[in-house]
Amino acid sequence: MFVTQAFAQDGETTGHLPPASDVAAAHGETIHVEGDHGGGFPPFEPEFFPSQILWLAITFGVFYWLLKTVIMPRIGGILENRRDRIALDLEAAERMRSDADEAQAAYEQELTAARNRAHTIATDAKDSAKADADKERKRLDAELNDKLDAAQARIAQVKTSALAEVDQIARDVTDTILRQVASIEASQDEIASAVSQADR
């Protein structure tokens, strides 16, 4: 808006410029003077609700798309891999336990057959060579004791190995779940203590 020369000269002589409404009136312009409006906080104004709802829907849609296409598949993949690994480890532990049971059954079968054989030898030779039969029986008992000790040591070793692997697997899985899913850092001692308490 320009101040005309007449109004400018008038303002210079009087020391002040005329109001803008007078200047606009002189030029045929209409000025709307906005007073102080007492409106509230814009997000709480009903006239802004549609745009806010639109942006809420857009934001929710983007978040849902990210959650569905990025976040949930990664979490699902991690859990699926862990579940497969746990299943494989449990299958291996079950196979080791089955091997231990088979070794124990074979040992019991051999022990039964050897005892039956020793009893038959002792019975057949009772009258003619009781001393020799006793000597042979003692030898067989010693052999069976050695086999028994060896078999028990093997069974204990297999069971200890299987249980140690299961404990280690449980600690590894717990550590991985705490780090990747729950974002919790825990020491190996704390994880081992928690796993041992869970086993009890």
Rank of each mutant, 00 (worst) to 15 (best):
Y64V: 12
T59W: 00
A100Q: 04
R137L: 14
A170R: 14
Q5E: 10
G38F: 04
A93T: 13
V62G: 04
Q197D: 10
S98H: 07
Q9M: 07
E45A: 14
F41P: 13
P73W: 01
N145V: 04
A142V: 06
L66H: 01
G15W: 09
A103P: 00
D175H: 13
A114C: 00
Q197W: 03
G15N: 10
F48Q: 00
A192P: 01
L178I: 00
R95T: 11
A105S: 13
L90W: 02
V195T: 09
A156D: 15
E12I: 04
I71V: 13
T123I: 07
T69V: 10
N81K: 15
T13A: 12
F48E: 01
A186L: 08
K68R: 14
K130I: 00
A194I: 01
G76K: 15
L163Y: 02
A6R: 14
Q5T: 07
F2Y: 07
F49H: 11
V158H: 06
E91M: 11
A113D: 06
I184K: 07
G61F: 10
H32N: 07
Q5R: 12
R139S: 07
F7K: 05
Q157S: 15
V62M: 10
P46I: 01
D124S: 13
Y64W: 03
R83F: 01
T13H: 08
R117A: 06
F44I: 00
D36R: 13
I184E: 05
L17T: 09
A26N: 09
D149R: 10
L144F: 04
H32Y: 13
Q109Y: 04
E47G: 13
A182M: 08
R154Q: 08
D146F: 01
G76I: 05
T4F: 05
G40V: 02
G15Y: 08
A133D: 02
A129E: 12
A156F: 08
